[in-house]
Amino acid sequence: MSARLQILQPGPQTTVQDLGRHGFQAYGVPVCGALDGTALRLANALVGNEAAQAGLEIRLAGPAFEVIGGPARLALAGALASIEVTLGDEMRRYSAWRAIDVPEGARVRVGALVGSGCAVLAFAGGVDVPPVLGSRATDLKGRFGGHEGRALAAGDRLPLGMGESQGPCLELPSPPRASGEVTLRAVPGPQTDAFTDEALNAFFATTYRISHEADRMGMRLEGPPLAFRSGADIVSDGIATGAIQVPGSGLPILLLVDHQTIGGYAKIATVISADLPLAGGLTPGTIIRFQAVTVAEGEEARRARQAEIARLIASLAPVREGPRIDEAALHQANLISGVVTALESS
């Protein structure tokens, strides 16, 4: 019998996600999947999984759970956080970006995320919920997929697949770090002709702030409103993840993985796929700007991103022993600042 997770506290929004449900958008079924697909790939690589296996997507802060029915190997990627593993009287703290072997009966608590609003917790063997339409991704709006089509709740039990937990735990020696300024590259279109020239120029020249209206469907942006040449309404057409639609208010909405398949607002630009993992982790209050690129430049950026992911996966190496703490994470997380001092002095 393979291990299961008994959820003690779910965190703000923890869902089962993989790389998404493709092939059914013609029926109105959104893609969903991890907001940060790079984090999913790297977390899976850390625990020895295939790239597309399902893990838990965490928003803002992690869940607490008990590992029952067997041991589990897990890894957090996409953000920094403190991971506490408690067995009996002994508690150990670990950092993100490394595999951790958790014995049967141990409790795991993932703290507040630092550096990104979302992260992926992967388990060797994957989270073994039944696939729906070819994917284990949770569709929150359609209420299917993942665990009962919803975010996790206390008391849930999640089965894990059979994983290869042989060999030493791996770590990523130099994890990607979030930079202060956020620039998202975007291809103008498809409805550039719905906007005035001034609006098109302003869109790429100004900064926007992520508002509090932000979820897996999309993020409303605050900034100067954009002017239309011909109005915000179009005859509904297909939407790609990363599309920036502009309703009548003139304030853009950046559409993310849970977006509707079609929509009736003009779209001024589309964030390129290489930058979508970054976009997915943005939190309210963050200042961003958009940089115009061509389709060919976007495709080239995606190839470069893929090569970067391959390079990071090739760099995985056995963990140097002993529980290690990412100091940057702890310095930024007030909740556990007391712990930093204790560890730094040791």
Partner: peptide
């Protein structure tokens, strides 16, 4: 090509830029 999404007056063609290009 990954999938297509028909709407009233246009077809959205999704593709994998690691396997082909828009051009």
């Amino acid at each position: 090509m990954v999938e297509t999404v028909p709407s009233f007056r246009s077809l959205l063609v999704h593709y994998d830029p690691l396997r082909t290009s828009a051009k």
